[in-house]
């Protein structure tokens, strides 16, 4: 990948010049270009959801017994009577005004439904993200170091098997187990519903467990790879304390290589919220989309997919920016 202004060797002064000469300019421009493309894709796909429904979506909504008049009304409400390009224009105009249409079943605007439900989904995904990172990075590094130094052999060799088993556990099973153990048997935490941080613990855990195991294994592998690099030998020649060697020379490299590979795992947490909200009966956007699909409430489906897609795009962007901050080589494409 070529870059716009990375190779300016002369020392420059002045903020404007530094911004223009910074490799960030090109990097961010490319990333934002990507974001725009994804957004366009999302808008087109969500618009087409109703149009791609096989047969007559209006007939599907009202059912086989309804009269022709009713079908016509629904078709009109979906805006299916106009030519496709005009329908798309209307859709775009609506989006520009934050109008995502009106729910068939509740008659509520989709945007107000989302503003009620989305915060919970985002909070849930964020809690899960924090759990995953807090577990995976320290634990994975520790196992990687122990393994490389030949310590605690039984623990490190059984780690791989344990991580594979836990990593294969879907959210709905993890959630069921957690409810059974912590809510029904130990009675430490509420079963379903409730509010406040305690209500968030089990759902967030149910989403986080499998990705945390997968990411921990990834961090372990990356740690082992980093520890065998020449620059670690050089750092060891500086006779640093173990802590400094780890925090300064190992962890930054582990985090960058892990993020490069593990960004998708973090995005997948978002998909986990859909399941967890259903297991724990939480009033989030993920629970609603399932109801909306069953009831064929196309405007709601459209809106939720658009917004969840948007969040996924944002997470990807945050991962990219973090990578750029941690490893300047990604800015210029010097790192493949």
């Amino acid at each position: 990948m070529a870059t716009t202004a990375a190779g300016a060797p002369a020392v420059r002064r002045g903020l404007a010049r530094r911004v223009a000469g910074s490799p960030w300019a090109g990097y961010l421009a490319r990333r934002l270009g990507g974001v725009v493309a994804v957004l366009a894709f999302l808008i087109v796909v969500t618009f087409m959801i109703v149009r791609w429904v096989p047969g007559d979506p209006a007939r599907q909504i009202v059912g086989l017994t309804a009269g022709e008049e009713q079908v016509r009304q629904v078709r009109e409400r979906l805006g299916l009577t106009e030519p496709l390009w005009r329908q798309f224009g209307t859709y775009l105009r609506g989006l520009a005004h934050g109008d995502l249409g009106t729910s068939f079943t509740t008659g509520q605007p989709v945007s107000s439904m989302l503003s009620q439900r989305l915060p919970l989904t985002v909070e849930l995904a964020m809690s899960a993200l924090v759990i995953v990172l807090v577990v995976a990075i320290p634990l994975g590094t520790a196992v990687g170091v122990a393994q490389q130094r030949g310590r605690a052999r039984v623990a490190t060799s059984s780690f791989g098997v344990g991580a594979s088993v836990i990593g294969a556990m879907p959210e709905y099973i993890a959630g069921t187990v957690l409810v059974y153990v912590f809510a029904l048997t130990l009675r430490w935490l509420p079963v379903q519903g409730g509010s406040g941080p305690t209500a968030m613990i089990l759902p967030a855990l149910s989403i986080a467990i499998a990705p945390a195991a997968v990411l921990t294994r990834l961090v372990r592998n990356e740690t082992a790879a980093v520890l065998s690099q020449d620059y670690i030998t050089m750092a060891m020649s500086k006779r640093l304390s173990n802590t400094r060697l780890l925090l300064r020379h190992v962890v930054p490299n582990v985090v960058t290589s892990t993020l490069t590979l593990g960004g998708l795992i973090l995005v997948a947490l978002l998909g986990g919220t859909v399941v967890a909200e259903n297991v724990f009966n939480m009033p989030g956007a993920g629970a609603e989309i399932v109801h909306a699909i069953v009831r064929r409430d196309y405007p709601e489906v459209q809106g939720i997919i658009l917004v969840l897609g948007l969040v996924a795009v944002l997470i990807n962007l945050i991962v990219d920016v973090t990578l750029g901050l941690l490893d300047p080589r990604v800015l210029t494409g010097a790192r493949s």
Binding site: I49, V267, I289, I305, A312
Partner: peptide, 21 residues
């Protein structure tokens, strides 16, 4: 690249919505 940046379950939900459950 673009498709891979979305969680598979959300893609699957989108198709399920189109094809009806």
């Amino acid at each position: 690249d673009l498709l891979l940046s979305f969680p598979p379950i959300i893609i699957a939900l989108t198709f399920t919505a189109i094809l009806s459950p």
